[in-house]
């Protein structure tokens, strides 16, 4: 009797311990399985296809083709330029927002969040209409007498750039704003009371302390730019083709092999950039902490 009760108690404790240790595993099981099947496995399929359909020579073709090299260069250049322009526009905006009254902040935030949550396709569509030869922008330029002939704005790298900056700007503003809100508002007056002019206080206090936001925003915008497909294919011309478009065209028209190999290139470039920039950001913040 006693032995049986002891065994029962022991197994109950064991069960409780199992639940404590593995309970979270049970909770995670459905979501984890889902991600494995519908997110990880597709990436594996793509990797396998890139090596077997028809064989590893897919990579030789990708590496030796001047067309694909050109596309990769265009993609990296476009992503870099988009990041710089977004930073230049988002910095003053986020700075102004971080020092605005509650009501102004709400309005400025709405101007960022409403586009952020609106269809990328619709926003790109608007730009195709605005930038076309008979569009609002050319009509205005001609009415103002800036140009006589409509400017070629659509199907150019300028068109792609305008559209991508418009779409990615919120991704830069949000982390910058978060970083700037964290800055102690008394630091700038403190610097000024010690004799620093406003511009110097800004350069020596605000800018360094906003750097985490700059890194976060820049990494996000650059990495997201790399995979862009809809915007460059509607606003760009044949010379501005980006990697995302080539991958889609390959897979839909020419079969899975080369498309998968290019997909792997895009995936690896994205992950490497992400890793490198994150490390760089960490090194940067370390260096800043150590300099007095």
């Amino acid at each position: 009797m006693t032995a049986a009760r002891e065994t029962g108690a022991r197994s109950a404790t064991r069960a409780a311990r199992f639940a404590a240790r593995h309970g979270w595993l049970l909770v995670l099981l459905p979501g984890g399985l889902f991600l494995l099947i519908f997110f990880c496995y597709p990436l594996v399929t793509m990797a396998v296809r890139s090596l077997t359909d028809p064989g590893p020579q897919n990579y030789t073709e990708v590496a030796t083709s001047p067309v694909f090299r050109q596309v990769l260069v265009t993609t990296l250049k476009t992503a870099g330029l988009t990041t710089l322009v977004c930073l230049a526009l988002a910095y003053p905006y986020a700075y102004r927002m971080s020092r605005a009254s509650a009501r102004t902040t709400t309005v400025m935030m709405a101007l960022v969040l409403l586009p952020f949550w609106s269809s990328l396709l619709v926003r790109t569509f608007s730009w195709t209409v605005l930038l076309q030869d008979t569009g609002l922008i050319n009509k205005m330029l001609m009415a103002l007498g800036v140009v006589d002939q409509p400017l070629q704005l659509i199907r150019t790298s300028l068109g792609v750039e305008v559209g991508m900056v418009h779409i990615l700007l919120p991704y830069m503003v949000l982390p910058l704003y978060t970083a700037m809100r964290r800055i102690d508002p008394m630091l700038v007056p403190a610097a000024q009371s010690l004799g620093a002019r406003p511009s110097r206080a800004f350069a020596r206090v605000t800018v360094p302390l906003s750097m985490p936001g700059v890194y976060a925003g820049a990494v996000l915008v650059f990495v997201l730019s790399l995979g862009f497909y809809v915007t460059p294919s509607l606003l760009g011309g044949p010379k501005n083709t980006m990697l995302g478009e080539v991958i889609a065209t390959q897979v839909t028209r020419f079969g899975f092999g080369i498309g998968s190999a290019l997909g792997m290139v895009l995936l690896v470039v994205t992950l490497v950039t992400l890793g490198a920039l994150t490390l760089l950001g960490r090194a940067g913040s370390l260096a800043r902490e150590r300099t007095p």
């Binding site: 997110f39 597709p42 990495v223 889609a248 997909g263 995936l267």
Partner: peptide, 14 residues
């Protein structure tokens, strides 16, 4: 973060 095109073609093949 992973490019949507990459997820799209992998999912499409499966």
């Amino acid at each position: 973060i992973i490019p949507v095109v990459v997820v799209a073609i992998g999912t499409y093949m499966n």
